[in-house]
Deep mutational scan, measured.
Amino acid sequence: MGFKLLSKLLVYLTASIMAIASPLAFSVDSSGEYPTVSEIPVGEVRLYQIADGVWSHIATQSFDGAVYPSNGLIVRDGDELLLIDTAWGAKNTAALLAEIEKQIGLPVTRAVSTHFHDDRVGGVDVLRAAGVATYASPSTRRLAEVEGNEIPTHSLEGLSSSGDAVRFGPVELFYPGAAHSTDNLIVYVPSASVLYGGCAIYELSRTSAGNVADADLAEWPTSIERIQQHYPEAQFVIPGHGLPGGLDLLKHTTNVVKAHTNRSVVE
């Protein structure tokens, strides 16, 4: 069995187990497998329904001669939608809004960016022009300005110390501490036991640490421990890039980060 097929099978099995364990909360999309990078042309966006009122959005972007996937989250909030992270750029984010209108038909009224990198804030200006209120932590807003990236308009308070959590509509926002970046936030959907790890969490097929220019490698494993301790009931975990899975993604990420750190020390 090929690795790609095995990865998709694991996603399907995880979703099936969740649907059985929580039949009222989960209505997993039966329309197909989780979209992969090879299936999404740059400039297009796919939506994948995880649970009743919960979707991931998947886009792709060219970077350094390669094409990478990027995940975000959409959560229903009454007759409105909360968006977590842009679709990595203005063109993708405009396509995301169009796809949401086509498939869901509810307005996106608020959006949260989970850290300051372009795959999370690139497209904020498109959201703002569409009347979406954009939010991020003060740290993310400051770092985005320093980096020359787009800056969300509103500040999220109460997320300055490791372990801080605040309720934001249908989700809980959690600051686990520094990891992929010093400002990275985690998003949890309690009604569906869905954990969105953003770039602080890796997919299972990833074996290298990737972009760690703004990471705190020493603190990252401790931050992941905080996530595990705060959300032990999480059933569906979405990484910032690639295929979702279960809580095993947290341990896998820790292993990859520690291996990278150990290699760096040896070198």
Rank of each mutant, 00 (worst) to 15 (best):
L6V: 14
A19Y: 11
L195M: 07
G245V: 02
R206V: 15
R120C: 04
F116Q: 02
Y34S: 15
A111Q: 08
A19P: 15
A136W: 04
D64C: 05
H117W: 00
W220A: 00
V237K: 02
I186F: 06
G43K: 08
S38M: 09
Q103F: 12
Y34H: 12
I104S: 00
I40C: 06
S70E: 03
G2V: 06
E80H: 09
S205M: 09
L97N: 00
P190I: 06
A95G: 10
V75W: 01
L6G: 10
V37H: 15
A51E: 09
L106C: 06
G198Q: 04
L24F: 12
S38C: 06
R46N: 07
R167K: 12
G32P: 08
A130F: 10
S223E: 03
I224H: 01
G43P: 07
I238V: 09
V54S: 03
L6K: 12
Q49P: 12
E101M: 09
V132C: 02
G131A: 07
A130S: 11
H117Q: 04
V256Q: 04
V146Y: 13
A111S: 13
E225K: 12
P138G: 08
D77A: 07
I186V: 12
N184V: 00
P107C: 05
V194K: 01
I40W: 15
V256K: 02
E219G: 08
E233Q: 11
L217F: 06
E39C: 06
G198S: 06
T222S: 13
Q235K: 11
P41N: 12
T36A: 14
A136E: 04
D77C: 04
L249Q: 01
G78M: 07
D52I: 08
G210I: 02
G53F: 08
V212P: 09
G177E: 03
T14Y: 10
K4C: 07
V11M: 05
A94N: 13
T153G: 09
R226V: 08
P232F: 11
G210M: 04
G32R: 08
V212Y: 06
G177M: 03
S7R: 07
D77I: 01
I17T: 08
D216H: 08
Q235W: 10
T114M: 05
G65D: 11
V266K: 15
T109D: 06
P35G: 14
P244T: 06
D119A: 06
D85M: 01
A130T: 09
G148K: 12
Q235G: 09
T222A: 12
V112K: 04
E99S: 14
L250R: 00
P176S: 04
V194W: 01
D85I: 00
G242S: 05
V212L: 05
S161M: 14
V112S: 03
G163R: 07
S160A: 14
A25R: 14
A218R: 12
P69F: 15
L195W: 00
V132W: 01
Y135D: 03
G123F: 02
G198W: 05
V187S: 01
G78K: 08
L204S: 10
A90K: 09
D77L: 03
L96Q: 01
A25N: 14
P190Q: 11
Q61T: 09
Y188M: 05
D216M: 07
A209M: 06
L13W: 09
V194D: 01
V171L: 07
A95T: 12
S7M: 08
D79V: 10
A15Y: 10
S22A: 12
A59K: 05
L24V: 13
V75M: 04
A111G: 08
A209N: 14
D248Y: 11
P138Q: 08
H57N: 03
F26P: 08
L9H: 09
H241W: 00
H252N: 11
Y231Q: 01
D118C: 04
T254F: 14
L173I: 14
I84L: 13
V187F: 03
R128H: 11
D183P: 01
G210K: 06
W55G: 01
T114Y: 02
D118N: 07
Y12I: 09
I224G: 01
I186L: 09
R167G: 11
G78D: 13
L13N: 06
G131Q: 09
N184H: 02
V67C: 06
I58D: 02
L10F: 14
E101I: 07
Y48A: 15
T254V: 13
H241Y: 05
A59T: 08
G122A: 08
T222R: 11
L13K: 11
V171K: 00
G158Y: 08
R128M: 11
A234K: 04
P176K: 01
T222W: 12
H260T: 12
Q228K: 11
K8R: 08
V121E: 01
E267T: 05
R206T: 15
H260N: 09
I224N: 04
S161K: 13
A15K: 06
G169D: 05
Y202Q: 15
W55P: 03
E33G: 12
L247W: 15
Y202K: 07
V121G: 01
S137W: 04
H241Q: 04
G43D: 11
F116S: 05
V108I: 09
E267A: 04
G131T: 07
Y202N: 15
L24P: 12
L13I: 15
K4L: 05
D214L: 06
H180Q: 05
P221E: 09
P232T: 11
L24S: 13
Q229L: 14
A133H: 12
I151F: 07
N255G: 14
L173Q: 02
L24E: 12
L97Q: 02
S208P: 07
E33W: 08
A209W: 06
V194M: 06
V237H: 01
A19V: 15
F3C: 06
G78P: 04
I227D: 00
A59D: 06
D77T: 04
C199Q: 00
I20P: 06
L250D: 01
L143K: 07
D118R: 04
S264C: 04
W55Y: 07
S193P: 04
G163K: 07
V171W: 03
Y196G: 00
D214E: 06
L9G: 11
D79C: 05
L9K: 11
G245C: 04
A234G: 05
S208E: 12
I84Q: 00
G197K: 02
T14I: 08
T140S: 07
G105R: 10
T254W: 13
G158M: 09
T153V: 13
S113C: 05
V67I: 08
